[in-house]
């Protein structure tokens, strides 16, 4: 399966990163190889088979809507951010 350079750039933008020219060439070849391999699934007959999305045997785990104590406080969490002001995380200009 061929993947165009435009498709690679589009996928990168969906993934929220940008790629250099060299990266695009390498990823194009890699993705084509990987897609060729996973297309092996075409050989498999799955007609009438239900999909499995998870293998956890429990369903609808309920618990009271109460806060379970976490040991990190507000200050500790704010300190992790590169920039904060007045107890809020600061980001660069949005517009």
């Amino acid at each position: 399966m061929e993947v165009t350079k435009e498709e690679i750039t589009h996928l990168a933008s969906l993934s929220n990163f940008s790629l250099g020219a060299e990266e695009i060439t390498k990823l194009k070849a890699d993705l084509e190889n990987i897609l060729r391999y996973i297309s092996k699934l075409d050989e498999l007959d799955v007609k009438g088979v239900e999909p499995t999305y998870q293998v956890f045997e429990m369903e609808n785990v309920w618990r009271p809507d109460e806060i379970i104590a976490q040991d990190a406080d507000r200050e500790a969490l704010l300190n992790l951010a590169k920039d904060s002001e007045d107890h809020q995380i600061k980001v660069p200009k949005v517009l």
Binding site: L11, S15, F17, L19, K26, L27, L31, I34
Partner: peptide
């Protein structure tokens, strides 16, 4: 994200989004 992910991270994210 461009600077912070390794090439293999990028490959997997892109395959996933594909």
């Amino acid at each position: 994200r461009s600077e912070g992910f390794m090439p293999e991270n990028k490959r997997r994210i892109m395959i996933g989004n594909f």
